[in-house]
Nucleic acid binder design. Structure first.
Lengths: 344, 344
DNA sequence: TTGTACGCGTTATCAT
DNA sequence: ATGATAACGCGTACAA
C-alpha cells in the first residue's frame, strides 16, 4: 500500500532528496555518476513522482487546460487531437478535463487553474448564457471555442471562436427554399433549449418568413426534454415516425444535428419513402458519417480543424504578446449532397 | 493570479484554518453559526479547495479510477455513463483519465493511485500483451474491461470482463458461411496489430478452414499501419475501392469493425453494387449507427452495458468482501440485419 | 556538486 | 466547539 517516495530513492542511494529531485528534473549541476545511480534506483523501485505534490509546490507550470463539455459529442473528438498538436508546438503541456452537460464548466475551470497551475484555458462546448460575473473569476486567459455567449456580455471580457448558429441555419433553410422545397419540417431541440438548438430553430423561422412561407406550428417537431437524448439517431428516428403518422404534408426534413438527420433517413427509407425524391433531408454540423450514408446527407459543416487551430493561436497571442481579447467567427461550409439533390 | 486559500477564509472569519476545514468537510463538532459564517465567506470569496493539497494530505479516499485508452472509441462513450452510475451507487467517487493509444496505461494507473489515493481501478481498452510483472505493480484491486490479456499471464493475477474476440469472430464467419457466402473478403486491422484486430482475423481464417474453404491471401485486406486510422469509415471506403478495382471475386465483406463496414458499404453502393444481393457486408461491435444505416448492417454486438455493470460489481466484491480475482466472459449478440439477408 | 530547511494548501491530532 | 501544529511529497534557495 505504502508507495515509494522520493525519500526512499534518496535513502537507497545515500543522497539527499534534493539530489534526487535534481536528477528527476534534469538539472545541470549534478554529477553524471550519481545521476545514473539515482535513475537506476528509480527504475528498480518503480518510483513515480506524486503529481499532486509537484503541482502543490510549483508556483507555475506550462500547461493549458481544456474543458470539454459533452464528451460524447463527436465533433469534439476531432478537435482534441488538433488542439493537442498545436499546443505542443508552443512547448506547452495540456490537460483535458471532460465534464457532463450538467456540470458547471466555470467551476471546473477554477479548480483546474489551482490544481494544475494552468497558464490558460480553452473551453469546448458549454452554455451560451454565461454571466459576466462568472467569466471574471477566471484569472488566466481563456478562449471559448464553439460556444455562443449571450450578447449582453461585453465582448472585451472574453475571447471566442465560433460559428453563428442562427445565421448558418438561415443559410441552410435559404438553400432548401432555393431548391424549391415548400413544406420544410424542422426537427428541433427540446423546448427549453438555451443553446444552439434554439438558435437554429430561430434561423429556420426567420428564413421561412423571408421566403414568404408562413410558419406552420405543425411543422415544428421538438425533441423530448431530456437534454441527453436530443442529439441521437434514435431521437430522429422517432420524430420521423411521428411525422409520417401525423399525416402532415412535407417534402423536406431539416434536422438541427446530423445524428437526428440519420435517424430520420432510416425511418423514411424503411417506409419506402425515397430520399430526396419524395422527401429531402438535411442535417447540421458536418459529421463524417453524413458522407458515408446512402444517400449521402446534406449538411452545414463546421470547420472544426481551423477553429481548433485558431483557438490555440488566440490563446498564445494573449499569453505571449499580452494582446486584448479576440473574437473569430468562422463560416460553415454547405455540403450539398444526394439527400437534397432534386431537380425543380 | 493569487488564488484564495483556506487561510484567507479563516482570516476573514476570524477563525482558525482547522475550523474552516471542519466546515468544509461536514464535521459534526462545529457550531452552526460559525459554519454558516464560513460558508458565506466561501461563497463571497469564490473559494475552491485545492484538490492537489487535499489528495496530498489524505491517506485514503473513496475514489475509483477509470483509465480509458482510446477516447474516440464510440463503444467507450456509452460505458462511461453506466460505470459512473454504478460506482455512484456504492457511494464512491470516480475519476476518468483518457489516454492515447501510445501511452502506457499501467504507468498512468500507478500515477493515479498515488495522486488520487485510488481504492480501485477499471481499465477500458488497452493492450492484451501485458506482462505479469506490470500487473503486479498495481497495489489496488483492478478490473480489465474489454481487454484481452495474454494467456501466459496467470489468471489469478487480475480480474477481467471481456468478450472472446477470436471465438465471436468465428461465430460471425460461421454465420456468413451458413448464409451461403463463398468468397468472403476480410477487412482486417494493420499487419502489426497486437490486439482485437489480429484475433478477429485469426477467427476468420480458422472458421473458413473449418468450412472447407481454402484460405486466399488475396481476400485479406490489411489496414495501413498507422493505428489511429484503422477504425474509420474512410479506411473501409478505401479498402473497398481497392477491392473493387482489384478484380478479385467476392460476394461478402467482413469488416473487423463497424466503422470500416460503413465505409465499405458506401463504396459498394456508389458503384451500384447492391447489398446484400451482389455483396453482403458484416461489421463488428454493434455500434448504434449500424441499425440506422440503409441497409441496416449485420454486426456482432458487444453487451457493453452489462459488461460495465459487471466490471463495477467485481471490483467492489474485491474491495468489500476481499474476494479473489474473477473473470467474466460475455457473449456477443449476432444482430442479423439487411446487409446479409439474402436467400440461398 | 551536494545537503539542509522551508513552504506549497490541506486535513488530522492533539490540546484547550 | 475551537485553535495550534504536524504531516503529506516535492522543489528550491541557501548553505556547505
Amino acid at each position: 500500500m505504502e508507495s515509494v517516495t522520493i525519500k526512499d530513492i534518496a535513502k537507497k542511494c545515500n543522497v539527499a532528496v534534493s539530489t534526487v529531485s535534481r536528477a528527476l528534473n534534469n538539472h545541470p549541476d549534478i554529477n553524471e555518476q550519481t545521476r545514473q545511480k539515482i535513475l537506476k534506483a528509480i527504475q528498480e523501485l518503480h518510483y513515480i513522482p506524486n503529481n499532486s505534490a509537484q503541482n502543490l509546490k510549483k508556483t507555475a507550470s506550462k500547461t493549458i487546460g481544456i474543458v470539454v463539455k459533452g464528451a460524447d459529442n463527436p465533433l469534439f473528438a476531432k478537435m482534441r487531437s488538433i488542439l493537442a498538436e498545436n499546443i505542443a508546438q508552443y512547448d506547452y503541456d495540456y490537460y483535458f478535463e471532460y465534464i457532463s452537460i450538467r456540470e458547471d464548466e466555470i467551476r471546473t475551470a477554477l479548480r483546474l487553474i489551482k490544481e494544475k497551475r494552468l497558464k490558460g484555458l480553452i473551453f469546448l462546448g458549454g452554455n451560451y448564457d454565461r454571466k459576466l460575473e462568472d467569466l471574471q473569476q477566471l484569472t488566466v486567459p481563456f478562449v471559448m471555442s464553439t460556444v455562443n455567449i449571450q450578447e449582453e456580455v461585453p465582448r472585451a471580457a472574453f475571447s471566442s471562436v465560433f460559428t453563428d448558429s442562427y445565421k448558418e441555419s438561415r443559410r441552410m433553410v435559404e438553400y432548401l427554399c432555393r431548391k424549391g422545397f415548400q413544406k420544410i419540417v424542422i426537427f428541433a431541440g427540446s423546448k427549453n433549449d438555451a443553446s444552439v438548438g434554439n438558435l437554429r430553430l430561430k434561423g429556420y423561422l426567420d428564413e421561412l418568413a423571408a421566403n414568404q412561407i408562413p410558419p406552420d406550428e405543425n411543422r415544428i417537431f421538438f425533441s423530448p426534454d431530456q437534454a441527453e437524448d436530443v442529439f441521437t439517431m434514435e431521437n430522429g428516428y422517432r420524430m420521423a415516425k411521428k411525422l409520417i403518422q401525423s399525416g402532415i404534408a412535407f417534402d423536406c426534413i431539416y434536422a438541427i444535428a446530423d445524428a437526428i438527420a440519420i435517424g430520420a433517413c432510416k425511418a423514411l427509407l424503411e417506409k419506402g419513402i425515397r430520399i430526396p425524391q419524395e422527401c429531402a433531408v438535411a442535417g447540421f454540423d458536418g459529421l463524417d458519417v453524413t458522407r458515408y450514408y446512402h444517400p449521402s446527407i446534406t449538411t452545414m459543416r463546421q470547420p472544426i480543424e481551423k477553429m481548433a487551430e485558431e483557438s490555440v493561436r488566440i490563446l498564445f497571442s494573449r499569453l505571449h504578446k499580452k494582446t486584448e481579447n479576440e473574437h473569430c467567427e468562422f463560416s460553415c461550409e454547405l455540403l450539398q449532397r444526394e439527400s437534397t439533390n432534386r431537380e425543380r
